[in-house]
Nucleic acid binder design. Structure first.
Length: 595
RNA sequence: GGGGGCGUGGUGAAGUCUGGAGUUCACGCCGGCCUGUCAAGCCGGAGGUCGCGGGUUCAAAUCCCGUCGCUCCCGCCA
């Protein structure tokens, strides 16, 4: 019979002041050291680990039971907390000054031999970890990640609740909208041939809540985007979504700062200085070649167009004549051999450049480079001065359209300068995003959702390439943590924006008619934001991918090795939904079941 | 859709380039010894269709083709 109650104390909290107490703990066998006589068992529960001493003369259980204990057996122990004998204190363990000397031990649940060891010391294949995620989550690192995630969300709620935000849930079965990411679809049984979509974000609903007079809303919202996965992207992910009425951009950014500071204080134990840096989109692109700069290191992009204004180097002269630009970075003393430098050229070409010029500053001040012979003395001086170059520094120069130059140099900058982990936290806001982004073909597409207010509708219509919007991103260590905007609250402006974005009146009316109608009933000016919780926690925990802070994530091909999702459903279910599977797909099912 | 990396007893790695007996290391597992260890120790043992399929070869973990899975990246992610 098991001891009742199973436990009255947590394993990880026992300390010297507890010496002499008789306690009951329950947990898992993390490690056993069986000396034939005395046996030491590290018992782990959610609070930590304590060493249990099983003395044969105390006979806490039969010899068979005691020597039969194995890794991850779930057990209950009653015993006395005792001081460890001199010289046997374990300073690496919070409970290391005490032993729990067992008077009784019960096996609550045995465990099969493990598919992998429960330890942070070995990197097990991730598919195997996911297949046995319940064991993987027993590891300290994963348990700590889940704790950090919980503390993160609690800190968010604490700040927003104190600021009188209302936590409101919005539907997850909604109508599909074709813009943006691919929707995750759910077929309707009651209206066959019709589909719900899972929300990519609660965008329109939170705006409805502003119309509804909620004034301050937030939600820890699950969002879904049916796009290819990455280290920082899952099919489903979590956002802290918030919105406020009678708000402008500064109100949003200040609220975000207070939320983020509380989270970082709680999880990392450090005070961030406020306000966070603010950078315009244009400045960010200019200096870092990206809209999500990692500002933990400099290596900024410098414009060399002036240096080469009258150059005799035809490749550069041609780019300048064609309206392109010439920029470079100083990657520092990389110590690369010729082959390593040429590999950078390949990398640049992969990124879309026609080429890359590298230069290495020599002891005598000259530049070693494939193009050195084309450069004048003035140009060499100008390059070194502009890039602040010292001996042995490697300089990378790209001449192309500004967009290409920024992408290539921005990527090389990260390749050679980005710190490995996330020891330091550099938050910043990027503001004044353009309304439109240029496509590779030179066309314009909306950079944001169509509910973002432009600085000026007239400018947006007359000069779309330069028009700015009241949209902003939060960036942490080169990762886009979230984005938001001041919304359009005037139905007339909203109609105009649809028009400029190329959404016809009929189309706008069909898809967003209900939304524009809502705006006609006294809509307060409002603005909001959403923070990616998974990304935030993964950075705080110094994890390389967000799966490490998600208890049951999907693999890169969207599957769950534990439960086998996604799965084929039977014909009865399909019939209820009025769905037929295409013959080719059915044939593939047959192949699958042959495996 | 495209490019890169990986797949070897239960786990992690080496072996693959340069073909020659399933070889090696660490952990785990099983058995024995062992009363103060804490990644316990010592001794012994079991355990693999080298992801899968095909090809080349006297001979394939190794070379070639295909395929599956995991992963990183490009595209995609308003």
């Amino acid at each position: 019979m098991a001891i009742q109650p199973l436990r009255d104390t947590k394993a990880g909290v026992l300390r010297t002041p507890d010496i002499g107490r008789t306690v009951r703990i329950a947990g898992w066998v993390a490690r056993r050291r069986d000396h034939g006589g005395v046996i030491f068992i590290d018992v782990r529960d959610a609070s930590g680990i304590v060493q249990v001493v099983l003395n044969p003369e105390d006979a806490p259980a039969s010899e068979e039971v005691l020597h039969g204990l194995r890794s991850e057996y779930c057990i209950a122990v009653e015993g006395t907390v005792e001081a460890r004998p001199a010289g046997t204190v374990n300073p690496d363990l919070p409970t290391g000054e005490v032993d729990l000397v067992a008077s009784s031990l019960t096996v609550l649940s045995a465990a099969d031999p493990l598919p992998f060891q429960i330890t942070d010391r070995v990197d097990v294949d991730e598919a195997k970890r996911l297949e046995y995620r319940y064991l993987d989550l027993r590891r300290d690192k994963m348990a700590n990640n889940l704790k950090a995630r919980s503390r993160t969300v609690q800190a968010m709620r604490r700040v927003l609740d104190a600021d009188e935000f209302l936590e409101v849930e919005t539907p997850t079965l909604i109508a599909s909208t074709p813009e943006g990411a691919r929707d995750m679809l759910v077929p309707s049984r009651m209206r066959q041939g019709h589909f719900y979509a899972l929300p990519q974000s609660p965008q329109l609903f939170k705006q409805m809540l502003m119309v509804a007079g909620i004034e301050r809303y937030y939600q820890i919202a699950r969002c879904y985007r049916d796009e290819d996965l990455r280290a920082d992207r899952q099919l489903e992910f979590t956002q802290l979504d918030l919105e406020g009425s009678f708000w402008g951009q500064e109100d949003v950014l200040e609220t975000l700062e207070s939320v983020v500071c509380e989270v970082v204080k709680d999880v990392r134990g450090i005070e961030l200085s406020r306000p966070f840096a603010r950078l315009t989109y244009a400045e960010s692109m200019e200096r870092y070649g990206t809209d999500k700069p990692d500002t933990r290191f400099a290596m900024e992009i410098a414009d060399l167009s002036a240096v080469f204004a009258g150059t005799g180097f035809k490749a550069f002269a041609g780019v300048l004549a064609g309206g392109g630009t010439i920029r470079g970075i100083n990657a520092g003393a990389l110590g690369l051999a010729r082959s390593g430098l040429d590999a950078q050229v390949d990398r640049a070409i992969d990124l879309g450049a026609k080429g890359l010029v590298w230069m290495v500053v020599q002891e005598d001040g000259s530049l070693r480079s494939p193009v050195a012979k084309f450069l004048s003395d003035d140009e060499i001086v100008g390059i070194k001065r502009t890039l602040d170059a010292a001996v042995n520094d490697v300089l990378f120069i790209v001449a192309d359209a500004p967009k290409v130059v920024g992408k290539v140099l921005g990527s090389l900058r990260l390749d050679h300068g980005q710190p490995a982990g996330h020891e330091d936290l550099n938050f910043l806001f990027v503001v004044d995003f353009p309304v439109f982004e240029e496509t590779d073909e030179g066309g314009l597409v909306a950079a944001h959702h169509p509910f973002t207010s432009p600085h000026s509708v007239a400018e947006m219509r007359d000069n779309p390439g330069d028009a700015l919007s009241n949209a902003y991103d939060m960036v942490l260590n080169g990762v886009e943590l979230g984005s938001g905007s001041v919304r359009i609250h005037d139905p007339v402006v909203q109609q105009q924006v649809f028009e400029v974005l190329g959404i016809s009146e009929e189309e706008a009316d069909l898809r967003f008619g209900w939304f524009v109608r809502a705006l006609r009933f006294g809509t307060p000016p409002h603005a909001g934001f959403a923070i990616g919780v998974d990304r935030f926690v993964s950075i705080l925990q110094n994890e390389p991918n967000i799966r490490e802070v998600i208890p049951f994530p999907k693999t890169q091909t969207g599957g769950d090795p534990l439960t086998g999702s996604p799965a084929i459903v039977d014909d009865t279910q399909l019939g209820e939904l009025g769905l037929l599977i295409a013959p080719a797909v059915r044939a593939a099912w047959a192949d699958e079941s042959d495996l």
